[in-house]
């Protein structure tokens, strides 16, 4: 419960030794400004993460009187669990493909729709709206849309004589279908953040480049993209984190099937933790996922050189 407290209490200590260049009075309010957020996050997120690590070292079940300590056995067992490797693979596949496509499509849409007029605004709203809908509702609607019997997709496809694929029951189509819905859901978010970023690119930079005779492609490559770097960083970090934690959409649409082909790390840990009552094992899965996310995010921040933007 006091993790947040001690961690930043201790870390804050050396501020007295900060270089004279930085006025002393700047440091103290910093922690004051952050206190509410850090207290809440510390108590309700950080400390529970630490607790879950503790669980992962046990054969832990809620309510059991005996929670045997087993060290890293859960982690060793993970390496021998084919379902874990499958889920890890699908999670990485979903993330890599959807984040990449989202950035490309979102960037294209942002460029196409950056100008301000009624038409672009309406189109932007249309693209953005799926993002504000709950994943559960979105998953539900798509499950029905893709239903071979009542769904519009196969209804149209049959009317056109193309047959009616069972999108979510097919071991080869289910995963791409989930990725597609995930892109449908998030592309508006990428677009809107990038549009905002585009507005921040000073017009004189374009002007200068144009005077130098830069082509359209060159403008994008040498003016727009560099200027958007912090925005792209934000978007890709957020998307990657969300995507590595994908749960609701899969849970509603396929439940991880067929034959575990759409199982993700979070659907797996949900099953192990809450259906099979193996909280310790589920916590081990979650820690692997957590470390994966930390590493990927750190790489992204390094790659986009987060530190030099401020």
């Amino acid at each position: 419960m006091t993790t947040g407290d001690t961690t930043w209490g201790v870390k804050a200590t050396p501020h007295a030794r900060t270089p004279a260049r930085t006025p002393r009075w700047r440091s103290r309010p910093a922690w004051l400004f952050m206190a509410p957020s850090l207290a809440i996050l510390g108590v309700f997120v950080l400390w529970p993460i630490v607790r879950s690590f503790w669980y992962s070292l046990h054969t832990w079940t809620v309510g059991a009187t005996d929670q045997p300590f087993i060290g890293f056995d859960n982690y060793v067992q993970l390496t021998r669990d084919p379902q874990f490797w499958g889920a890890l693979l699908h999670t990485v596949e979903i993330t890599a493909v959807s984040v990449l496509l989202l950035l490309v499509i979102g960037f294209f849409l942002a460029l196409a729709l950056a100008s301000e007029n009624l038409v672009t605004r309406i189109i932007r709203s249309a693209f953005f709206f799926p993002y504000v809908v709950s994943l559960t509702a979105a998953g539900l609607v798509w499950r029905f849309l893709l239903d071979p019997n009542i769904g519009l997709v196969d209804g149209l496809s049959k009317a056109l004589g193309w047959g009616a694929p069972a999108w979510l029951a097919s071991t080869t189509l289910a995963l791409p279908t989930i990725i597609f819905v995930s892109i449908w859901k998030n592309v508006g978010f990428v677009m809107i953040i990038l549009v905002a970023g585009l507005k921040g690119v000073p017009e004189d930079q374009y002007e200068a480049a144009r005077l130098d005779g830069a082509s359209r492609g060159q403008l994008v490559r040498f003016v727009t993209l560099p200027a958007l770097r912090p925005t792209i960083l934000f978007v890709s970090v957020i998307l990657t984190i969300q995507s590595l934690q994908l749960f609701d959409l899969v849970y509603v649409m396929t439940g991880g099937g067929p034959l575990f082909t759409t199982d993700t790390l979070v659907t797996l840990l949900f099953r192990d933790g809450f259906v099979n009552f193996q909280t310790g094992y589920a916590s081990a899965i979650s820690w692997v996922l957590f470390l994966l996310i930390v590493i990927v995010s750190a790489l992204q921040l390094k790659f986009f050189r987060y530190n030099d933007v401020d």
């Binding site: 947040g4 961690t7 930043w8 870390k11 804050a12 050396p14 501020h15 030794r17 900060t18 930085t22 700047r26 440091s27 910093a30 922690w31 952050m34 957020s37 850090l38 996050l41 510390g42 997120v45 950080l46 529970p48 993460i49 879950s52 970090v237 957020i238 984190i241 934690q245 749960f247 979070v266 840990l269 949900f270 933790g273 809450f274 589920a282 916590s283 979650s286 996922l289 957590f290 996310i293 930390v294 995010s297």
Partner: peptide
Amino acid sequence: FRGKTIAFWLVLVTLMVPFQV
């Protein structure tokens, strides 16, 4: 201030855990 990077990471880390955990 000292510890800024750590504070930023502490915040960011809280995004990285699914609620089920």
